[in-house]
Amino acid sequence: MASNALGLFGGPNAALAAAGKLKGAGFESLDLITPIPLHGVEEVLGKKTSVIKRFTFFGAIIGGLSGFVLAAGTAVLYLHPTGGRPIITFPPFLIITYEMTILFGILATVLGFLISARLPVLRERIYVPESAVDKFAVTVACAADDDFKRATEILREAGAEEVTEITPGSGR
């Protein structure tokens, strides 16, 4: 039966150490739930990459293009010559381009963040309220009862203050 083991730790070092041991014992689906971002996570759980940078990059490019198209295209739709300037003038339109580049870059970053962090949450997920205060939780998905026992042991050995079993959707 699939279930999750959750260990609560009093500090980041213990939690990270536990996560490292679990990883070493062959558990792949590990999560740390912490009140602050931990800086040693990547060394323990492996390098993370995210798609956000692609979102930002392409968002900015699309923004830049659409910025210039907005300014130049609308100037052409209804010709109203002003001040002896051409209809399509570069210096002013580049400013519009600049602003739209940044606007779309920002919006795409937000989109990329929401998608890659899987937010907003639509279904209930494993969560412990203490982890928003001062507890550092390690959750591990266990495929079989054997795995669960093994994981519980490792968590206790690493100094977990509390170890519980959680099935997603049932709350705590």
Binding site: D31, I33, L38, K48, S50, A117, S131
Partner: peptide, 10 residues
């Protein structure tokens, strides 16, 4: 929730 992935993305 504050998972390591969420923190990383944030």
């Amino acid at each position: 929730r504050g998972t390591d992935t969420e923190w990383h993305r944030l």
